[in-house]
Design a protein around this nucleic acid. Sequence first.
RNA 1: GGGGGAAUGUCCCGAGCGGCAAAGGGGGCGGACUGUAAAUCCGCUGGCUAUGCCUUCGUAGGUUCGAGUCCUACUUCCCCCA
Length: 419
Amino acid sequence: MTDFSPKSEFLRVMFERGYVHQCSDFAGLDALAAKREIVAYVGYDCTARSLHIGSLVSIMMLAWLQRTGNTPITLMGGGTTQIGDPSFKDEARKLLSLDEIEINKAGIREVFAKVLRFGEAPGEARMIDNAEWLTRLLYLPFLRDVGRHFSVNRMMTMESVRQRFEREQEFSFLEFNYMLLQSYDFVELARRHGCNLQMGGSDQWGNIVTGIDLGRRMGTHQLYALTCPLITTASGAKMGKTAQGAVWLNADMLSPYEYWQFWRNTEDADVGRFLRLFTFLPLDEIARLAALGGAEINEAKKVLATEATALMHGREAAEAAAETARRTFEEGRAASDLPGIDVPAAELATGLGVLAAFVRAGLVASNGEARRQVQAGGLRVNDRVVTDPARVLTAADATEAGAIKLSFGKKKHVLIRPV
RNA sequence: GGGGGAAUGUCCCGAGCGGCAAAGGGGGCGGACUGUAAAUCCGCUGGCUAUGCCUUCGUAGGUUCGAGUCCUACUUCCCCCA
């Protein structure tokens, strides 16, 4: 794989930027890409109201695919989500109701229009839902047409599920069918839309090549697999976890400001790699930024944060987030567009306990935690460390900007606005 | 079908001779040092109207002044024999 030098622009970008983990046939895929004839899909199950940055690598792959003249398909898993992918899972996830799936699907759809151009013409992206065909399958015909091509023996030896069997953990027949459905999706997309490539995370390798196999047995054109590596941070942690949980892509789940902050806090050693994976900046520019040493690397992190945020939330929101961060961290002022909560003026008039205020702002989970943080010196009001847990906030604490700034640690700030 | 073991702080692992808000890790959070980084060191890591009160150890009962700890039944999981 390392000595392969691609002729097509698409594969060249994939290699240069670090998107490639495994491919079923580099040369074959390269030939298709050179003719700009790739029609590639990535499937997204509707397990939450928004995708998180775990899905971002594959979204970027689709974006590059389109930018290099090929055709992307985003497949919503309206059908497969009703089953749940067992790959590399310790236990079955709980079944989602059809209503939940619909809500999630609606939330997830939004993100793709930001990096892909949709339409009907060649080279324009399609959005398809596998519920379209999966919900209409008839059991016996499906078993006879598709099921007969699957070897249970072989499926049980697949890496993605082997642990489940080895540990003798429950593996339901429902889950067992996921692989059949995903494989069938690939065939269906090949037939309906001329799809010839499925991309995804490295954990999807088994499911994807099984689909290629099914295609061959069911007489489609040649299908291909291309997977990207699972992204971890330089210090080995799974990427995309914050105190609040996952790093969501939708603004209603995680504000652009917080999203910007996530990227801003990237480890030094990851800056170059993340710039290549998560921005469209040219490689020479990235090389220059990644070469910055010592404190100067912070400039590169700001570029990363702003570019990555602009991709998901728009240039304007990204610049605003950058500016808020600059005022907050570099000037130590209370930028007015920090996250904030409204508190009735009447309540402030009678006095609001600091502990309760921090809980209300969502910075700490309980009064008890707030109390402990006071002892640790982790809470500040208008940049002054809180030392007295009995302290009461009143309207007099509002600064000239008209708000009270609560800080938890060095990085989390919330404004209390009297209304 | 028979025999033996296990379920602990709702993030995970895990100690716990009847006095336990319950050892120790990991993870997470805060503080110090830095550069909003990493590494390192220190602290915290049930709730509350808080020198006290309330709720936690698979579920439901029982013994006891007092139960995570003992007894009974049930649930789930693991191991051995058949």
